[in-house]
Design a protein around this nucleic acid. Sequence first.
DNA 1: CTTTGGAACGGTACTCAGTACCAAGGATAG
DNA 2: CTATCCTTGGTACTGAGTACCGTTCCAAAG
Lengths: 227, 227
Amino acid sequence: MSKPPARIRLADAAFALFDERGYEQTTVDDIAERAGVGRTTFFRHYRSKEDVIFPDHDRLLELIRDRLATSSHRTALVAVSDTVRLVLLHYIDEGDLARRRYALTSKVAALRDREIASVARYQRLFREFIADWMGDPTESASLRAELMAANVVAAHNHVLRRWLRGESADPVAEVDEAMREVLALFPPPGSPAEPGGGTTVVAFRTGQDLDALLPSLRRLVEGGPER
Amino acid sequence: MSKPPARIRLADAAFALFDERGYEQTTVDDIAERAGVGRTTFFRHYRSKEDVIFPDHDRLLELIRDRLATSSHRTALVAVSDTVRLVLLHYIDEGDLARRRYALTSKVAALRDREIASVARYQRLFREFIADWMGDPTESASLRAELMAANVVAAHNHVLRRWLRGESADPVAEVDEAMREVLALFPPPGSPAEPGGGTTVVAFRTGQDLDALLPSLRRLVEGGPER
DNA sequence: CTTTGGAACGGTACTCAGTACCAAGGATAG
DNA sequence: CTATCCTTGGTACTGAGTACCGTTCCAAAG
């Protein structure tokens, strides 16, 4: 019969009331009252009403930062995949709580916006990490970093939402597969040519000697300004 | 000496005060007072304090929806590019206003979150449009639609932010180029092989007749289960 | 010219989130 | 027993956003 700590009681009361009356119809006073504490105590444990639902986004942000930091240049892309898996596992660990939160964010616009803002912070971390990793200050590289980061979080969110909706039995395998697909979109820097899509095989026969052809081939492959 | 309409006066007063004292330090009363109207009038013209800065995101949303709607199945990808260019031009038309807004969203977290939430709504439109266009209800296609939409808005935002920072002399050309790059990442459905990245050119010489080689080549290109 | 109807405006009063401050209780170290 | 710290609850305040009401102004209809 011993009471759980106030922080837990507040969260329980909040979710229960949100389910009963809806988010906007529930005041902080209501939550505090049902939890059996004062209004002040609520704001001591949670910075805002929304914070009851998103308690540890800061911690998750740190988690991502730390995981990305512990990676060498060679293992950068692996680190990205690992980090995404880590974030997904974090949500899965929350289990039913994550699903109740999803039900709320699906209905209340203010909460959806808040969720999106948090995700944007993750994306920013990935973007900065990838940009650092590429080390290339050109505008083209900057765009690529932006795109890669957008893909990474989009893939994660896609799988996460599938799991939240109960559409995925093995989300970890799915996210790994999705990340492979994402990273395949971006050919490694050493690749021969522009990402033109697909594989082109040219077979031809000529009487010319191979050495005579090489200069033309080289020009084609290296794609200089001359046509 | 005739006064501009209240809506304009309110916006001018708001931006001036935000510049002088900062966003949080400015109350709605301050804005209304400087504009020479009552507080009630402020909320009649703008739903909230943030709305003064983001006045027509709803209209922009409609613009996107309409432009995407007027496209046949064949021109879907062109419509996406056109729409992105349209949105970019919308911001460019705002000129200095867009830049002042950018200065604010760069400093005030609440405004940045709001901006991000709006962009997420655009992204949703693109995702739904692309998913419809692909018409393929499989999980793989769904992920692809999500990724494409993420890329499209990321590319747009990248170019837009460059222009807002004064780093781009010809943002329209840049966004067109960025969109080409994005769409090149996603090979069209009829493409021969997996998006493995890059272009492979094979040049070789043989004494065999071309007809004798064709079956082997065909097997390679079509990529059956046998190696 | 008068009347009527609607639209824009200003004012008052209210709810609620979030902040600041202070006073009381309870445990602990000395 | 006492001084101290920490947690808690209460009170009071600011500011955003909503609801409602009375006024004014303008225009069309009579």
